[in-house]
Amino acid sequence: MRKLSDELLIESYFKATEMNLNRDFIELIENEIKRRSLGHIISV
């Protein structure tokens, strides 16, 4: 996760939620978004 750019991480989050991927996977992405202080972009 740390090698993904912020932009790609956010894009991955939206794609994963759109495709209804595994909730655990989405939570991993959400946690990384929060760690990077980007939660305001997706309202996490």
Score class of each variant (00 low, 15 high):
L9A: 01
I41R: 09
M1F: 05
L9R: 01
I33M: 13
R2C: 07
I10L: 12
A16I: 05
E30W: 15
I42G: 03
G39I: 09
D6F: 05
M19H: 11
M1Q: 03
A16C: 05
I10A: 03
D6P: 03
V44I: 13
R36C: 00
I33Q: 00
E11W: 11
M1R: 02
D24Y: 10
E11L: 12
I41D: 04
V44P: 10
S43E: 14
L21V: 11
I26D: 00
V44M: 14
V44R: 13
M1P: 04
L38M: 08
E11Q: 11
E32S: 01
T17M: 15
I26W: 04
D24L: 11
L28Y: 04
R2W: 05
N31P: 01
I42F: 02
R2S: 15
K34Y: 10
K15Y: 15
I41Q: 08
S5D: 06
M19T: 09
T17C: 07
D24G: 10
M19I: 10
K34D: 05
S12E: 15
L9P: 00
G39M: 09
M1V: 15
I29H: 03
V44G: 13
I42Y: 01
R23G: 11
Y13R: 01
N20L: 09
L9M: 02
F14C: 06
E27F: 09
E32V: 02
I10N: 01
E32K: 00
F25H: 06
G39L: 09
I41V: 11
H40G: 09
S12F: 15
Y13W: 15
I26R: 04
S5H: 03
D6C: 04
I10F: 05
R2L: 12
H40L: 06
R2P: 04
M19S: 12
L21H: 09
Y13T: 00
A16Q: 04
E7A: 13
R35L: 07
G39E: 13
L9Y: 01
L9V: 03
K15H: 15
I41K: 10
D6V: 05
I29T: 01
R36P: 00
E30I: 15
R36A: 00
I41G: 04
S37N: 15
K3C: 08
S43N: 14
S37A: 11
L8M: 12
D6T: 08
F14V: 10
I33T: 01
K34S: 07
K15M: 13
R35G: 04
H40C: 07
L8I: 11
D24F: 10
E30L: 14
Y13F: 10
R23S: 14
F14I: 13
L38P: 02
E30V: 15
L4A: 04
E11D: 09
I10H: 02
I29A: 02
R2H: 13
L38S: 02
S43I: 14
N31M: 13
H40S: 07
R23T: 11
M19E: 14
S5F: 04
I41T: 07
E11A: 11
E7R: 10
L4M: 14
N31F: 10
G39Q: 11
N22W: 08
N22Q: 11
R23D: 10
M19P: 02
N22H: 12
L28N: 05
D24T: 12
S37G: 15
E32N: 01
K34H: 12
V44Y: 06
R23P: 13
K3I: 06
E32I: 02
F25R: 04
E32A: 02
I33K: 00
N31G: 08
N22F: 07
F14H: 10
E32L: 02
I29R: 00
E18V: 05
F25E: 08
R2E: 14
L4K: 03
I29P: 00
E27K: 13
L38R: 02
E18H: 10
K3A: 10
L4P: 01
L4E: 02
L28S: 07
E18K: 07
F25I: 12
L8F: 10
K3G: 13
R36D: 00
L9T: 00
I33G: 00
I26N: 01
D24S: 12
R23K: 14
K15C: 14
H40I: 06
E27N: 10
S37R: 13
S43V: 13
S12G: 08
E11V: 06
I42K: 04
N31W: 06
R35Q: 05
E18P: 01
S12D: 05
R23I: 13
E27S: 10
K3E: 15
H40A: 09
D6R: 03
I29N: 00
S5M: 03
N31C: 07
E32Y: 01
G39N: 10
F25T: 08
I29M: 09
I33S: 00
L21D: 11
D24Q: 12
L9H: 00
M1D: 02
I42T: 05
E18I: 07
L21I: 10
K34E: 08
H40K: 07
L9D: 00
E18R: 07
H40P: 07
F25C: 09
K34N: 12
R36H: 01
I10R: 02
S12Y: 15
I41P: 04
M1E: 03
K15F: 14
H40Q: 07
E11I: 09
I26P: 00
I41M: 15
N20G: 15
E32P: 00
T17W: 14
N20K: 07
K34M: 12
I33H: 00
A16E: 10
S12M: 15
G39Y: 09
R36M: 00
T17S: 09
L9I: 04
M19K: 09
V44W: 08
L4D: 02
L28H: 04
D6I: 06
I26G: 01
G39R: 05
S5A: 06
L4V: 06
I26C: 01
N22S: 14
E18W: 05
L28M: 14
K15D: 08
E30F: 14
D24W: 14
L38V: 03
K15R: 13
L28D: 06
M19R: 09
E32W: 02
S37D: 12
L38Q: 03
E27Q: 13
E30N: 05
S5I: 05
R35I: 06
I10K: 03
I26F: 04
E18S: 10
E18L: 06
S43G: 14
R36F: 01
G39D: 13
E27D: 11
R35C: 03
E7F: 11
S37E: 12
L28Q: 10
E32M: 02
F25M: 12
F14G: 04
E18N: 07
A16F: 08
D6Y: 07
E32R: 00
T17A: 10
L38A: 02
S43L: 11
E27P: 02
E7I: 10
K15Q: 12
N22R: 08
R35P: 00
E30D: 03
Y13Q: 01
M1K: 02
D6L: 06
S37F: 11
R23E: 10
K34F: 10
S43T: 15
F25W: 14
R2I: 09
E27G: 07
F14K: 11
S43M: 11
M19A: 14
S37P: 02
D6E: 04
F14D: 04
E18A: 11
I41W: 09
G39T: 13
G39C: 11
I10G: 02
N22G: 13
I33R: 00
E27A: 12
V44E: 15
S12Q: 14
E7L: 10
E11P: 01
D24C: 07
E27H: 10
H40W: 08
A16T: 04
I29G: 00
K34G: 05
L38C: 03
T17I: 15
D24E: 14
S5N: 06
L21K: 08
I29K: 00
I42L: 08
R36Y: 01
T17G: 08
R23N: 12
N31I: 12
S12N: 08
I42V: 08
G39K: 06
E32T: 01
R35K: 07
F14L: 12
A16K: 03
L8C: 11
S5V: 04
I26V: 09
F25G: 03
S43W: 02
L38I: 06
S5E: 04
L9E: 00
S5T: 11
T17E: 11
D24V: 11
D6H: 04
D24M: 10
N31S: 12
K3Y: 05
K15S: 12
R36K: 00
D6N: 10
K15I: 13
T17R: 13
R36V: 01
L8K: 12
L8S: 12
Y13C: 02
A16P: 01
I42P: 03
R2D: 11
R23F: 11
A16W: 07
L28G: 04
T17N: 11
K3T: 15
I33V: 06
I29S: 01
E27I: 13
T17L: 15
N31T: 12
Y13I: 02
E30K: 13
R36L: 01
S5Y: 03
R2V: 09
L9K: 01
N31V: 10
L8W: 09
R35E: 05
L28P: 04
S5R: 03
N20T: 05
R2G: 11
D6G: 02
M1W: 04
E32G: 01
E30R: 11
S37H: 14
E7G: 07
L38G: 02
I41S: 06
E27M: 13
F14S: 04
L8T: 11
G39H: 11
N22A: 14
N20V: 06
N20M: 09
I33D: 00
A16Y: 08
K15V: 12
R23H: 15
